[in-house]
Computed example of a mutant assay.
Amino acid sequence: MQLHRKGHCVLIVLITVFTAGSLSAPMKVKLHDSATLSCSGRCSGLVRWTEFSNRTDVLAECDQTSCRSVKEGYQMIYDQYLKGNLSLIITDADFSKRGSYTSDCDGEDLCDVKLKIELVQDSWIWKTTYEKGKSDGYQTGVQFGALAVGVASLFIMFGVFFLGVVAAPWVHPQMDSCVQMPRSNDSSYRSQCKEKERGQMFI
């Protein structure tokens, strides 16, 4: 019974060591830089790189005769393959390419590598985007300002038109009455008015 338990412990240790040896530290690259997923070993047959989540979709492969880029943006170097360098090169690492990759030799697993994309804020991509955003914001502000001035001008013109055409016939008599009211309290003005009335009566 104790031997059986010891055998299980040894098996668990061997599996842990094998798994730790096949997994490498995550590969970190900047956005749109090239990434090299390191893998070394000897393979006399066919080496293939695939995404860990899709083992049937081959990205690049090598055998004793040549290397082939099965999918655009992924490649292996034949000279390096002959030397035991089975690394996969990703020419343009964007966000669609982040994730876990795995390689195998004739179906036997070799290396598992996880790719992470780093976005640096002071990169030219951020700078270009920021400057474009500032420019677009300034242009939008100018457009809204011009629109506001135009609307205000229309309201002023409409007000002037209303006072000059619509309200003038009503305002003018009111102004005359306002002028005449103070004069009606003046004795000389009243006497002049009476003289005019008498003259009109004689005529």
Rank of each mutant, 00 (worst) to 15 (best):
S188L: 15
S87W: 00
Q200S: 13
E108Q: 13
V166S: 09
Q80I: 05
Y74T: 04
K196W: 07
H172N: 14
G107N: 09
Y101T: 00
M157F: 12
Q174T: 09
R68H: 12
I77N: 05
T91H: 03
S153P: 01
I89P: 00
G107F: 03
Y81K: 11
I125V: 07
K127T: 08
Q200E: 15
T129L: 12
Q174R: 11
G164M: 08
S66P: 01
D92F: 10
I77C: 02
D94T: 06
D112I: 14
M175Q: 13
M175I: 14
A152P: 09
P169M: 07
S87V: 07
D122T: 10
S153Y: 06
S191D: 12
S123Y: 02
A146I: 09
C111R: 00
F144V: 11
F161M: 12
G141L: 12
L86P: 02
S69M: 01
F202W: 09
R198L: 11
G150Y: 01
L119Q: 00
S96V: 04
Y189A: 12
S153I: 02
G107E: 05
A168G: 00
F144K: 03
T102N: 11
P169C: 01
I77E: 11
D186C: 15
Q143R: 10
D136S: 14
D79S: 06
K194G: 15
Y101E: 02
K196E: 11
T128E: 13
Q192F: 08
